[in-house]
Every structure is written in C-alpha cells, then in structure tokens.
Design a binder for these strands. Structure first.
Lengths: 141, 141
DNA sequence: GTTATAATTAGAATTATTCTAATTATTGAT
DNA sequence: ATCAATAATTAGAATAATTCTAATTATAAC
C-alpha cells in the first residue's frame, strides 16, 4: 500500500497504536510519515497539504483525528506557542523551543539530562510534574 | 471617579500608558485594578465579569483592547497555556507557571536570578532571547 | 460472511479573538 | 470655554483554529 514509512517506523507506529487499542490506518500512517519526513514544525493545515500528495482525498478532520491519536500514543509532540495554530514534531527527546520573532522560524534546543534536572529543581515540594514546555522568543544572529 | 486603584498603582498606570502615548481611561483603570485585585489568572471573560461590577456597560471588545494596551505597556503579563483562552496576571517578576491537571489551578513559581541564568545557558551561541515561557504540567500533592 | 466496532468524511458548530464602522470622549490649540 | 483632531469605546460581524455530528466506509472478531 505504498507507505513511505521505514519498516522500523511502521513497527513503532503499529506497536504504539495497538498499545492504546487503536488501529493502523493508511491515514494515520501517512500523517505519521509526513511528520517524520521533514524536520520542521508543520501545522495541521500544512500536514493536510503534504499528506494530500499521497492521499488526495484525506480531510482536515481526519488529519486532526490522526494527530490526536499520534499525540496520545506519544509518537508525535504537539507544540503550542502563544495563540498561534498548534504545530507538530517528531522530536520526542526532551527539548526546548526557540522562536525567531523576525523569521517565525522554530528551532529545537535539545536539553541535556543535567539541564532537565535543573528545571525540575524549580518545582517546590509537593509539585509533581509530568512534563514541561519551555519556549524562548528572540532573534537569531 | 471612584477608582479602586491605590495612588501608587494609578501613578504607575498613568506613567506606563503615557510612555506609549496612550490615555488613561476609566475602562483601562478598572481592568488594571481588577487584575491587581486578585492574585489569580483570569481570562478576558472573567475580567469582563469582574469589571462589570463597577462598570456595567463595558464591552468584551474593550476588555480585549485594554488588555492589549496593558500588556504592551508591560503592566500585565499574558499567559498562554496549550490552546486554552489567554490568561492575565500582574506578576511581572520572572516566574514559571505550574498547571495542575486535576484542578486546573495555575500557580506562579518565582525564579531566582541564578535559575534564570541557568535557563539562558540553554541558548546556543547566536540565539538572543528577550523572553521565555516555562510551564509545568502536573499534580499537586 | 456477518455483525460489531472503529475510523473517516463533509460540513456544521463552537470558541476565542480580531475587525469594522459608528459613536463618544479627550486633548490641544485657539 | 469652543472647536477640530485624534483616540477610545462599543456592538456586532467576521475570522480562524478546532471540535462535533451524523452518515458512510473500513476493519476485526467471531
């Protein structure tokens, strides 16, 4: 069925979906492959356009549904900045984001284990955090 | 004109607005006083309700306009979490946010100068950041 | 193969926010 | 104080991202 997914990615997808009792469908596979295929931070609209190259009849609602499933399965990370449309990225390792206020460009800033420890230290006793979002706004020299 | 603003807050408001060439109006004053008056993180809707106690005829559009001015003057901070409605708070000192996924409660976590320095160290050379947002999601024990 | 369940689809509905155009208020110059 | 110029407020329409609804299609389990 002409997936552009590598065998290892397909397996990862199948496993993660199955774990949540969800099915592997061609829509989910293509959405996932599109997100893996380019190291940027596309919005749902952009993902729709890219998937339509392979699957012209897919609808925006389905893209949103697929993204929800993929995020739920922790295969994809949803990135929200200010009130702009959500963006999606395949980078699952802990990282911060940098948004250039001039170009709009978004860059991943990977975090070392030691830096994550320092972030966790910000939490007072009694605060248990499962995840965090760290976004810098600024400019690139 | 029955402002609930303390003299010092009123002065601060006047100065900050004037600096940007904006006028002090009763709507802006009441919106500011409502935000100062309660240490939480109200949405524009909630602010509308609170201001209407004093100023029954104020419109939602005006609340949005006032908030925009106050944020522009750095009198109020706009807090965006995920894709939920923007919230506004008078805490101008650098701080992170903690959102309890059970209660929805939002707590300010003040940051020490040393912690801010550590955050800035996450930025590679060439990345110049004017501000950052740090939000933890989790639960309160 | 049939039935039950899940996923997709188109389009309507929702929600937060912004925009538009008209009205009202404020300022500055006379 | 009066008047013109500008700014702010207002109601309601418009927008944009996302979610919901109801019908259709696909898949899995027996």
């Amino acid at each position: 069925m002409n997936f552009k997914l590598k065998a290892s990615d397909k397996e990862k997808l199948d496993k993660a979906l199955a774990k949540k009792g969800l099915r592997t469908t061609k829509q989910r596979s293509f959405v996932y492959s599109v997100i893996l295929g380019k190291r940027d931070h596309p919005t749902a609209d952009e993902i729709l356009l890219r998937v339509r190259n392979s699957l012209p009849s897919i609808s925006l609602a389905t893209v949103y549904n697929c993204l929800e499933s993929l995020v739920e399965c922790a295969l994809v990370r949803q990135v929200n900045m200010d009130r702009s449309p959500s963006r999606f990225c395949p980078n699952l390792s802990p990282h911060a984001h940098f948004k250039c206020t001039k170009s709009g460009k978004i860059v991943d800033l990977s975090l070392k284990e030691s830096q994550i420890k320092l972030l966790k230290k910000i939490l007072p006793k009694g605060f248990v955090s499962s995840n965090f979002d760290l976004t810098f706004n600024g400019t690139l020299r």
